[in-house]
Nucleic acid binder design. Structure first.
Lengths: 139, 139
DNA sequence: ATTAAATTGTAGTCGAGGCTACAATTCTGT
DNA sequence: ACAGAATTGTAGCCTCGACTACAATTTAAT
């Protein structure tokens, strides 16, 4: 039972993570779209995620409440400073995970898919280990 | 746009994964509890996951529909052959991920938490690379 | 400038996973 | 054997992420 209590904490964490994963995916996507196009519209995100514009709409509302995004009705979506910082951190983390998977011999396609799933569950400490390993392999 | 279509596939996959993660967590938990105690009851799972017994109840019903578990009203929960196989695969995969994290220098506590999050997103191919890496480190 | 197309917003629905409150069943102790 | 405790089941509600259908606004074209 004490053991069970210990066990429940990681699981709770996993569940909570799910609620922030989407936010991270969104800011990453917004950053990416905003860099190629001039501005990021709801439709772009809907296509990007393969989801209806309605879903995107509410998500953007949520991101706005969290101060990650600023937008007005019928206007494009922009990242706030906070949102940009998060996007950058996510992009870096994503890249680290992806490069790490390549470095240990995963083929690029599988690495791309797995990185997508793994990136949200990597603690800073583990991430640092990934960096070290990738460096080591490159020598 | 063609790029966006390509992008949406991994995201869809990620979303679908979430629906199977819980099933995997459950069979793993049931296997673990069943090995220490004699039988696994709803309450045990509720404590294990830090969740109400009602939630567990419905989850177990779902697992039963999927043929992973067999149970009767007011009786303990047992894994079917199919459920046991899944549990074993999950346990092995979990262990591989955990040992791998340790091998690359992540401390045990962080490794335990991260393994919990990562395990569900590792393709067989990546898993194999983890195995190789862990072996290499042990030499 | 006005209509047609594209984009965005709103209303209402659904399933999943979570909860509380209460009812039913099984287990335990005396 | 029977009362009380523990366990399990049921009813009904909530939130979140997804959808369709329809309304409103903005953009583009003739």
């Amino acid at each position: 039972m004490t053991e069970h209590a210990k066990q429940s904490l990681p699981h709770r964490r996993t569940r909570h993570d799910h609620s922030t994963e989407l936010a991270e995916d969104y800011v990453e996507a917004i950053a990416e779209i905003s860099s190629s196009d001039r501005n990021c519209r709801i439709v772009d995100l809907a296509k990007y995620f393969g989801v209806s514009h309605v879903t995107v709409n509410r998500m953007v509302g949520r991101l706005q409440n969290e101060g990650l995004v600023s937008t007005e009705p019928y206007k494009p979506v922009r990242l706030t400073a906070k949102g940009s910082r998060l996007a950058n951190r996510c992009r870096e983390r994503h890249e680290i995970v992806y490069q790490f998977l390549l470095a240990i011999g995963v083929d690029p396609q599988a690495a791309a898919i797995d990185a997508e799933g793994i990136e949200h569950h990597v603690s800073p400490e583990t991430l640092e280990c990934f960096v070290q390993q990738t460096k080591a392999k490159q020598c």
